[in-house]
Design a protein around this nucleic acid. Structure first.
Length: 936
RNA sequence: GCCGAAGUGGCGGAACGGUAUACGCGGUGGUCUCAAAAACCAUUGGAGGUUGCUCCUUGUGGGUUCGAAUCCCACCUUCGGCACCA
């Protein structure tokens, strides 16, 4: 084989094998019911034009895993396609005067070439491009089916809008604190538009429950659970004094008696009606400013609360208390009913709001921890008070109170201590003083008696008494505001736990375990409201005011109203002569040929819907489209092929899709199941999410940073196999990592060393015969490598798989110059090395396999198996510790007995040295690993 | 802010509660060469020391344990998502 021992030249072998694989149809899909199928899928790339290193990072390991499954006997199908609708194509159209279709398809052609260079096992015969009519016909078909099932509806919803460009803006097109248009700098306004929604909330519970049947990363499931945000509570109707019903959703109906105000979202439909004339200007200004903020800003809990009183009052239905109505940006229209009851004593945000605006705060749920505090002011009690506290076993600390002297900081635990404390306080309180107990109870001890904070009136009365005694506290508007000025009390002023109801009329004393359910039953009986489940998830807004998307197949007829396009008329084609305005406005609105049509129902003149669909629609069913792209039957894909291949067995993609794409595609599958298109609940059985590849400077790659890595450059110099292997070597796939131009050279060197281990016969073997021990050593390394590498592939740990392969190759480099060279064990070693590298470096492995005399193709070979007997270590290193510190290491036979190990350990000189003057208490033995001698 | 994740040598990272720093990069010294590159060999966490050793080190502070990078609590920092980027 001397003539084939040339240098490793990736360029020639990669081209050679890519051609050969294609010619022989190695990766072509075959339906073979005799073998277990494996549908491997990686998230489809967007047609950005250039294959970024990020695409390689997502796809190469996914391919390696698919190849690994293939070597385990699975009939693997690994399709590919393109997500081809979207904003960048329109921007290109405006900037370069090129039709989005042409721009996109040029990109597709270029990307296909780049993708082929990766040497992945893609089945190109089932490629699908989402912007082609044969594809989006079915995207539109899904819209019609959802509409038929009552899952699509039209409703007015706000969009970010640039008044100058006359166009809707995506979130990424809105820049800066002042939220201006990225193109022209004009401040963005909110505009209400009629838009189409999908009723994903109908499936909220199924999306939650079915998570149990899929093998997805726990973090993705958790994110989806939070995203769906199921909460059980009650729908309760308050009324304004004028009689307008104001429904609220609350998860805590047991706190209804503590609702001392209401807050509406600034966009709430009743705001204009409720606002009194003198408040109008202020309210309008606030509504305007709230509308300009993002939801993220509005919900930030660390910012100062803002809000405005509308001037009107509502009535709390459970106790007929009059409560003021406010608007504030922390209440959103999209969640619940867009209005809340403010319970400041048991909700952080309501507490902060009430404190800021001087609204009364009345506790209505007992603290389950029974903790209370009291600050005894200097000079407010007679001598001997502290001794009484000692006698009762009450904890306190003496400390300065401002600049007035030393006071007592008392902490009380439980009823007995609180009652005892109040009794003592009543006896010792100096005239002209008061003392308060805060937390488990809110009690004010005055010299003529005790007053509890148990209602809005008591709040006023207590404050008035205190003010009379010490006028400066009169600046406070509520008792809580006064208490909040003392930092000592801040952690006991409110709590959000369930507990026994207090200050709640007939419900006072109701235990926390049943409080919520009991109150719901009671309000249902009185028809004040009812139990309700609320979701944070809201319906999916699928309308986009864009041209480059699948047109929504709907027609507006002056006489028939909203009419769906008949199925047989699909697809509603995008015009190929649309004129793009430099503003970015959708040309569909001005394209007469597209816009004007006839009503499918009455045949009269009608207009088309000009909005297109969210591109997440296209990617919600692409895993089905691949089965039979641009299918011409009466369902979106060939049912027979679908029965064999579906669902996806292994899906991989970025964690950034955790909540949106991955939730939408699950929703689609559930609707498809209900339509009878598929017989399963979930589209992807197993999911792995990779992290993000960063630039050499550890920053996200971007053109502006100048740290973008072009894979093509490295493919042409070091080869696709080096790029693939390096990307897998960087670190754990799920965590991402940063590119390194020197790191990839290290991989290239490694592949060269593999090459020389397998092909180099110039190192003449030492004439001596290999001993049985040398053979056993080599075989042990081989079988340990197979064991470790197999485990790593199983767990998607390509980085450690490569580390083990490198280590193994280093061993083989040494063995090459020893008598084992050329033995059967050597042949087993090199074959195993090549087989284990095949998924990561498919070209190199194929070439080396051929040189080893293997039959075409290495990718049809079976994965090597390891023999535990052969892999077992003969000698182990026993670590000897004294009190947990390593004091000696002993080479010992692997099967050493506990007693022998301990004896050996104690015999070590350095161990004896450290045991001097100490008494052995315990000896811990971990078989084959360590002996820890505990001595004092 | 909320939700999710991660912090280990000069760098990327490895470590079933049991030898911290595997593997690779980089550095240093050497071999080869007229020279350089490549390749190969050796060495490489920090501090101290009498070759044998000792001490310190896994973001910070506590805790559990014979033993903690690993488990628990609190905090700090960085990254991803937050509904019209895909």
């Amino acid at each position: 084989m001397a003539e084939s021992s040339t240098a490793y030249e990736p360029q020639s072998i990669e081209a050679k094998w890519q051609r050969r694989w294609e010619e022989s149809g190695l990766y072509r899909r075959v339906e073979d019911p005799s073998r277990p199928k494996h549908y491997a899928l990686t998230m489809l790339p967007y047609t950005s034009g250039d294959l970024h290193i990020g695409h390689w990072y997502a796809m190469a390991p996914s391919d390696a895993r698919a190849r690994y499954m293939r070597m385990h006997g699975y009939n693997v199908w690994f399709p590919i396609g393109f997500d081809a609708f979207g904003l960048p194509a329109e921007n290109a159209a405006i900037q370069r005067n090129i039709h989005p279709h042409q721009w996109t398809m040029d990109n597709v052609r270029h990307m296909r070439t780049q993708l082929r260079a990766m040497g992945a096992m893609w089945d190109w015969e089932h490629e699908a491009v989402s912007c082609l009519p044969g594809y989006y016909k079915w995207t539109q078909w899904f819209f019609l089916k959802f509409y038929e099932r009552g899952l699509a509806y039209r409703e007015v919803a706000p969009v970010d809008f640039c008044p100058r460009c006359n166009t809707t803006l995506a979130r990424e097109q809105v820049w800066g604190e002042d939220r201006h248009c990225e193109r022209c700098g004009t401040p963005v306004i909110r505009k209400e538009l009629a838009q189409w929604f999908f009723r994903i909330t109908d499936y909220a519970d199924q999306l939650l429950v079915d998570m149990d049947q899929i093998d997805w990363p726990e973090r993705v499931k958790t994110m989806q659970r939070h995203w769906i945000g199921r909460s059980e509570g009650a729908h309760v109707v308050f009324h304004s004094e004028a009689g307008d019903p104001i429904p609220v959703f609350t998860t805590r109906p047991d706190t209804l008696w503590g609702a001392t105000f209401m807050v509406l979202a600034p966009e709430h439909p009743l705001v204009a009606k409720l606002t009194t004339s003198e408040r109008k200007a202020e309210i309008e200004a606030y509504v305007e400013s709230a509308g300009r903020q993002t939801e993220i800003d509005r919900l930030a809990t660390d910012k100062e609360k803002t809000g405005v009183f509308v001037g009107a009052y509502a009535v709390n239905p459970v106790n007929d208390e009059r409560v003021p109505i406010w608007i504030a940006d922390y209440v959103l229209t999209g969640y619940g009913t867009g209005a809340i009851m403010g319970v400041p004593s048991h909700d952080d945000r309501d507490f902060a709001f009430a404190l800021k605006f001087g609204l009364p705060i009345v506790p209505v749920i007992d603290r389950p921890d029974r903790l209370a505090k009291s600050l005894v002011f200097p000079g407010s009690v007679r001598d001997g008070f502290a001794a009484e506290l000692d006698a009762l076993g009450i904890a306190y600390e003496e400390g300065p109170v401002g600049t007035v002297g030393l006071g007592l900081y008392v902490t009380l635990q439980g009823e007995e201590q609180i009652d005892g404390y109040v009794a003592v306080m009543q006896r010792y309180l100096q005239p002209g003083n008061w003392n308060e107990i805060v937390g488990a109870r809110f009690l004010f001890v005055f010299d003529d008696g005790v007053r509890a904070l148990d209602s809005v009136e008591s709040d006023r009365a207590i404050l008035a008494r205190c003010k009379a005694i010490y006028p400066p506290v009169g600046e406070n508007r509520t008792v809580m505001e006064m208490l909040n000025s003392l930092p000592f009390y801040r952690d006991v002023l409110l709590h959000a736990e369930y507990g026994t109801m207090i200050n709640s009329g007939d419900f006072t004393g109701r235990p926390g375990e049943t409080a919520k359910a009991d109150v719901i039953r009671w309000i249902e009986e009185r028809e004040l409201g009812h139990a309700e489940v609320n979701y944070r998830l809201h319906d999916w807004l699928i309308s986009r005011q864009r041209m480059w998307g699948a047109p929504i197949p709907m027609v507006y007829c002056p006489s028939c109203g909203v009419v769906p396009v008949p199925e047989e008329d699909l697809p509603v084609l995008l015009p190929d002569d649309a004129a793009f305005l430099p503003t970015g406005e959708s040309p569909l609105k001005y394209h007469h040929g597209f816009l004007n049509t006839t009503c499918p129902r009455c045949g009269g003149a009608a207009t088309r819907e000009t909005d297109t669909m969210d591109t997440f629609m296209c990617s919600s069913w692409y895993n089905y489209a691949y089965v039979s792209p641009y299918y011409e039957g009466d369902v979106p894909f060939d049912p027979e092929a679908g029965r064999y291949w579906l669902p996806v067995d292994q899906y991989t993609g970025g964690i950034e899709h955790a909540t949106m794409h991955l939730l939408y595609t699950r929703f689609f599958t559930k609707v498809m199941r209900d339509m009878g298109l598929v017989a399963f609940d979930e589209p992807m059985e197993r999911l792995f999410c990779q992290g993000m590849i960063l630039g050499e400077d550890n920053e996200k790659m971007s053109k502006s940073r100048g740290n973008v890595v072009n894979p093509d450059d490295y493919v042409s110099t070091l080869g696709a196999d080096s790029v693939r292997a390096f990307l897998m070597f960087i670190g754990p796939w799920e965590l991402g990592g940063s590119w390194s131009s020197t790191g990839i050279e290290g991989i290239y060197r490694f592949l060269n060393r593999v090459w020389s281990v397998v092909t180099d016969s110039s190192t003449t073997a030492i004439p001596a015969e290999a001993t049985a021990e040398e053979i056993a050593d080599l075989r042990r390394y081989t079988h340990q490598a197979i064991r470790d590498v197999t485990r790593d592939y199983e767990a998607f740990k390509f980085n450690t798989a490569l580390a083990s392969l490198m280590k193994y190759n280093n061993v083989l480099l040494k063995a090459q110059a020893s008598p084992v060279y050329g033995t059967d064990a050597w042949r087993e070693a090199t074959r195993s090395l090549v087989l284990m590298l095949a998924p990561i470096t498919p070209h190199l492995a194929e070439e080396l396999w051929e040189r080893l005399g293997g039959a075409y193709s290495v990718h049809d070979e079976r994965w090597p198996e390891w023999d535990p007997e052969l892999a077992a270590d003969r000698v182990v290193t026993l670590v000897v510790q004294v009190n947990g510190k390593v004091r000696a290491r002993i080479e010992a036979p692997a099967e050493i007995e506990e007693a022998d190990a301990k004896e050996l350990a104690l015999g070590q000189e350095n161990v004896q040295l450290h045991l001097q003057g100490l008494q052995i208490r315990q000896v811990v033995y971990v078989p084959g690993r360590l002996v820890n001698i505990v001595a004092r």
